[in-house]
Design a protein around this nucleic acid. Sequence first.
RNA 1: GCCGGAGUGGCGGAAUUGGUAUACGCGCACGACUCAAAAUCGUGUGUCGCAAGACUUAUGGGUUCAAGUCCCAUCUCCGGCACCA
Length: 795
Amino acid sequence: MHKKFDHEAIEKKWQKTWKENSIYDVSERDIAKEKEFVLVEWPYPSGNLHIGHWFAFAVVDIYVRARRMQGKQVLFPIGFDAFGLPAENAAIKHGLDPKAWTESNIAFMKTQLESMGNAFSWNMTASSIDPLYYKWTQWMFTEFFKKDIAYRGEGSVNWCPGCNTVIANEQVLGDGTCERSGDVIEKRQMEQWMLRITQYADRLIDDLDALDWPEPIKEAQRQWIGRSKGAEISFTLSTGDTLNVFTTRADTLFAATYVVLAPEHELVAKNKTLIQNWSEVENYIREASQKDDIIRTKAEKEKTGVKLEGITATNPATGKQIPVYIADYVLKSYGTGAIMAVPAHDERDFAFATKYNIEIQQVISGTEQLPFAHHGVLMNSAEFNGMDSEEAKGAIITKIGGTLRSTYRLRDWSIGRQRYWGVPIPIVYDPEGKPHSIPKEHLPWHLPTDVDFTPTGEPPLAKSAELKERVERIFGKGWTPEVETMDTFVDSSWYFLRYFDNSNNVEFSSLVKQKDWMPIDIYFGGAEHTTMHLLYSRFWQKALLDLGLTTFSEPYKRRINRGLVLGPDGNKMSKSKGNVIDPDIQVRSLGADTVKMYLAFMGPYGETTNYPWDMGGIAGIRRFLERVYGLSEHVISADSAETEQLFTKTIVKVSADISAYKFNTAISALMILLNHIEKHGVSNASYEIFLRLLAPFAPHLTEELWSVQYKDTTIHESAWPTPNTLLPDEEVITLSVQINGKMRGTVLVSPRATEQEVVAIIQNDHVLKSKLEGEIVKVIYVPKRIINIILHTPP
RNA sequence: GCCGGAGUGGCGGAAUUGGUAUACGCGCACGACUCAAAAUCGUGUGUCGCAAGACUUAUGGGUUCAAGUCCCAUCUCCGGCACCA
């Protein structure tokens, strides 16, 4: 047998050589080449690389290396999203310095990342905690503040008791718990720093159409934004107030037999002297406010509410006086916080009206069964009778003077965090308490270090004497600092713009460099970011566009969401389950190439399927690479025609599969080729082609084998193999034979054979001819594919 | 409830987009090498059947010369949204 495949020595050796020669650094944009910006989500430096990082980065490296060999100038940067709670929690628990803790994590993770052997553009890295990075995060915030994209507003916010901070809507999971800590979120009324993402709702939805993204991701964003197109209609109350309601069913206005306000609606408290049953109403409001949203929306469908005695509303279509209710099934935060209720054509209104004995009037014909929530033809609607719902919407709105409007599920993005380890919000308050942005010359606005991390519910920065002193020194007596820091999703909303201009100290990212590299050609990442990071950064880009700071309205041309690597038991990896696979251990025993290739072989990348780790499976990949290591023993003087043909096929297949992120089938094609070579031998030229095809998958091993013949070049700068198009058609092919639609066997024929010739061959085939008993009624012949012979069979 | 996606061997998964279902890998069985084991190599491996053969891509229908692939209905799993007017 051949010498031992010493992956450890090989991998160390080439990683060192690559690093010394900086072969993966990306210099100035080279116009002679097409560019490709491949982005992966920058990791949080938790201090240990887990298998998920390998799945996220090492598999993508296959794509990157193939593109490089295909002559593209590829930008494949990596950096660190290094602000965030874990550092602060380490400070609280173990008295460590968050900065030192994070920096040592980064240093260690860098060495782990290097052990992957990826073609990272290390000269174009960035880190969110670098003051030269967060200077620009702060500067963009101040620009947003000046343009009123950032504002301070009072509102209902999500308070996480575990994290001791406010979090954004997107960071609350479906079951009402915190995305980070898992704690149940409380609703609080607070002043908050917000970004006006809702102003971009239409563009965030409409611009999705042009993106080359998987449809499910686009659809999830559309649903999250939740646009519904409808109309705002005014009802006049007997108090003299105008009540605006939002409806998507203006066509049912004639059936609006009551209106409902959210308990918190301002017109309720405003008219308390006119409400005859005020104490009952007040009670109901208090009860409603004590239920948090989770209980309020999960509360079984039983509807509750109170009629406002002494107040009525006028239906603008019928002129009738209708009752006014408050009920907590109407939400203050959605639409106008009030609805026109149409019990005949809305399930919720129907349930409520039935319970409280309110009139039910049908206006959509075609059923006896109410509620009927579908569209149809109008009845009981005066001059609109006989009109179709869709048409009637417009006609009725026009007649009663309503306005077309969209309303959204999306809320503004709350970005203030009552925590320490983040970007300080660059705002100071004057003695009157009015906020002012910090001028550019004072940026970066440094994060103070003289703080006490003990959680008290008060933001840690409030305890910094240095910060107070700094503000008074610069701005004057009586001025006070903002003490909140930013959501880390702010840091990651623009990081990709910094990578390729990471030493620019005049701009966050120059327009020239942006033109060189943007947009991102392909962004690989986790499905969990669909309605968080992916939405935030799209918004950020559009805000920059409006400020003239970029010319791109969308950052990501293509996006691929990947799945998860599960433990060998099929469960999500977790310390408590004891099913965690440590990549360092795998790399030590089997090699980086093996781990990377195994992850790529598990299944198609780019589907959000979750794959269990299989110890046997990775051993199979290791066996494959060991056989490759000894492959030179099979080099012979020339290839057979069959071998040449298989090479052509494999080159086409592997190239296409990599472009489609189907690394699993690309690997399978390489395995088939190896199996063939070991049996039949391979010419030296083809052996090199094999190595080049494998190079993106097993960069260290192939570099080692390449170096045996080419001392001074690297395989990773060699050209990607192209198929030999001059190969003749195969002389004979195997054609499948069906008789009466059933597979009966195969025959060997020329690819150019005629139907008659093929039928004659089948009639002479010892096995097949016995099945051809009867008159041939019809023959379907698809050259190179199949022949189907239909016989007349007597009854 | 609404909107997506998916159901293929013992397992991960293939299938030129309507043309030999189960590629490739794992696992398993047998054999070779070995005192023995591991490793390695070879052979076999959808199900039933001694065989000829029949059946088989969640289930039931349909279209077609031909269906894993297209159409209709049903079931199950995963993800998103959900008292959103």
